[in-house]
Amino acid sequence: MTRSWHSLAKVSDFNSAKSKYVDLGNKEIALFFVEGKFHATDNFCPHRGGPLFRGNIEPGPNIRCPLHGWNFDMKSGQSLNMPQATITTYPVEIRGEEVFVHI
């Protein structure tokens, strides 16, 4: 499948929020804004489908699934407490006021 850049949010969406959920129909993306940087990952936790955008953001930055605590590195997608589990992460670019994600 060919990847392309998609505008998924406005920078200002993150004035008060640290995460955002985007439903693309065939894919659900979680966007995070941590310490001045944007990160994009799958929203779907590989354990039981927990919504990662509602998880706890922890130093790393990592995202901890809100259901049963699987923890993922936002950059690499590698789980830190479940070595065989990963999530897909996506490149992010800021163009003007918009947050573009390469999906």
């Binding site: 706890n56 901890r64 049963h68 605590g69 699987w70 923890n71 407490n81």
Partner: peptide, 8 residues
């Protein structure tokens, strides 16, 4: 508390 899975 489980520090690896459930810190809260």
């Amino acid at each position: 508390v489980d520090k690896d899975f459930h810190p809260t």
